[in-house]
């Protein structure tokens, strides 16, 4: 059976956008095209958890159909992988719920089914989460205030790839930073199954003053379509190879 590919954008930021279109709007647009947008807001160590500027974090994830989490730097690693996994489950569960509604009627969802059957459905959801292929565009805010947090971000991304590569399904990541030098975003790492190679790239990141979150999200969204084109070409040749088995 051919399992589908889940598409996610993971936005890591520490505050409010201040340039370009509304990021929540762009996230909604991405969601319409089957891309989930997850957001992680990083706090300063002396910052309290309900900061006004970080409300945007929640809004973007809500309209992007994803998961948001606001954290202190020291638990970033665990959070990044938890958010990604949770968003995968959420997306798959969304599909399953839609199917259930079609079969059982419009007011049915997993919660309205008795615990026994719910268990069986969750087993299927888990199976899919484990074996689906996953593509993640990581979008790292490198505006000036993020400077001190970049080493932690780097570590948590390497950690994410350890977690995801322990799954059965295939993974591909690419990383962009924003703002870019002259563009809205800048490529740090092209589509790759591993993130170990980012160690050399990360320290060279320069931080800028503006935070064009909206335009950056839009660029991130486009990475998937470029990718799909390439992949469909590659898949054709891969299919031929598989016959050899």
């Amino acid at each position: 059976m051919k399992k589908g590919t889940l598409k996610q954008i993971l936005l890591i930021t520490d505050g409010c956008s201040n340039k370009g279109e509304d990021p929540a709007g762009v996230a909604a647009l991405a969601y319409e095209q089957g891309i989930t947008v997850n957001v992680i807001g990083i706090l300063e160590n002396n910052q309290s958890e309900d900061v006004g500027g970080l409300k945007e974090v929640e809004d973007i994830a809500l309209s992007g159909g994803g998961v948001s989490q606001i954290v202190y730097p020291e638990i970033l690693s665990q959070t990044v992988q938890m958010v990604t996994r949770q968003a995968m489950t959420q997306t798959i569960q969304g599909f399953v719920n839609k199917e259930l509604k079609q079969i059982l009627g419009s007011n049915q969802s997993i919660e309205n089914i008795d615990p026994e059957k719910r268990g069986e459905i969750m087993e299927v959801v888990e199976d899919l989460g484990e074996s689906s292929d996953l593509e993640v565009v990581v979008l790292v805010d490198t505006s000036a205030s993020m400077h001190d947090k970049l080493p932690t971000v780097k570590e948590s991304l390497i950690d994410l790839s350890i977690s995801l590569n322990s799954r059965i399904g295939k993974n591909r990541f690419c990383i962009f930073s924003f703002p870019g030098k002259r563009k809205d975003i800048q490529k740090i790492l092209d589509w790759s199954p591993q993130l170990n190679s980012i160690s050399e790239v990360f320290p060279k990141l320069t931080s800028g003053g503006i935070t064009p979150t909206g335009p950056a999200l839009r660029e991130a969204m486009y990475q998937f379509s470029k990718k799909s084109l390439l992949r469909s070409l590659r898949n054709e040749s891969a299919d031929v190879e598989e016959f050899g088995y």
């Binding site: 569960q93 919660e111 615990p115 719910r118 268990g119 969750m122 959801v125």
Partner: peptide, 13 residues
């Protein structure tokens, strides 16, 4: 967190 709980119950079973 209903889904996580369901997963745990599956393990226990």
């Amino acid at each position: 967190k209903g889904t996580s709980m369901t997963v745990e119950v599956n393990v226990l079973k």
